[in-house]
Simulated scan of single mutants.
Amino acid sequence: MAHSTVSVQSAMVLAPDNFKQNMWSTGVCDCCDDMGICCCGFWCTYCLMCQTSENFGECLCLPLLEICFGGILHPITFAMRSSMRERYKIMGSMQDDCCAVTCCPVCVWCQMARELKARRQNLVVINSTVHTIHQQPQAFNQQPQAFNQPTQAVNMGYQSPGYQ
């Protein structure tokens, strides 16, 4: 009977010393720090908003809901900024977020895009030692629990070569 080998690697993610985790990497008005993001925010604001939302792990179309508020209120921008601040443990308050969003929502989206870009580039992965685990192979004559009933496999139109 053959043995299989599984290698398990643990990794630790660290931010460099020059990366302050409790502060925004750039200010709201530091649009010129990244001209690509600045131009995208100026010429195609909703493209920047949707891309930033997706990069943050939210729905791509979420920022488009702000169209419903006629440009007067910016609840999605406020929610995204507050959520980003909480996720990355950035100092500030909801009052600060509200003031920034009310004054210049496009600048806030540019700041959030720069923050995501900075956090993506500044991560350092440190691998520790590799632990090798030897496992006995599983017997192939046992049926998985999902296919205990023969009619279930037939109804799905799937017949595995190892199962009868």
Rank of each mutant, 00 (worst) to 15 (best):
L64A: 08
R119L: 04
W43E: 04
F56D: 02
N141H: 13
S10I: 14
C50I: 05
Q138H: 11
C38Y: 12
G157W: 15
V6E: 08
I37E: 01
P150V: 05
Q121R: 14
V106C: 08
E58G: 01
C99I: 15
L65P: 01
V130T: 15
V101T: 15
G36S: 03
C39D: 03
Q51C: 04
P105T: 14
F56A: 05
C31M: 07
Q138W: 06
N122D: 09
G70F: 14
R85E: 04
D17F: 00
C98G: 06
T132W: 06
T129K: 13
P137C: 03
V125G: 00
M1E: 10
Q95S: 09
P137N: 08
C68G: 00
Q136S: 10
M23S: 07
C47D: 08
H134A: 07
P16T: 13
V154Y: 13
Q9V: 09
C47N: 06
C107K: 06
Q9H: 05
S93N: 11
T151P: 03
C40L: 12
I37P: 00
N148Y: 03
S83D: 09
H131L: 07
N22I: 00
H134S: 09
C110D: 04
S160Y: 04
P105N: 11
A113E: 07
M84W: 06
I133K: 11
N22D: 12
T77L: 06
F140W: 04
C50V: 00
S160A: 10
V125E: 03
S53W: 03
Q143K: 15
N122S: 12
F78T: 08
F42L: 09
L62C: 01
N122M: 03
S10W: 02
T129Y: 05
G157Y: 15
L60G: 00
M84R: 02
I72W: 02
E86F: 03
G162V: 14
Q136E: 09
S4P: 01
A11R: 15
Q164W: 04
C38W: 13
H74S: 08
K89M: 04
E115L: 01
M23A: 07
V101R: 10
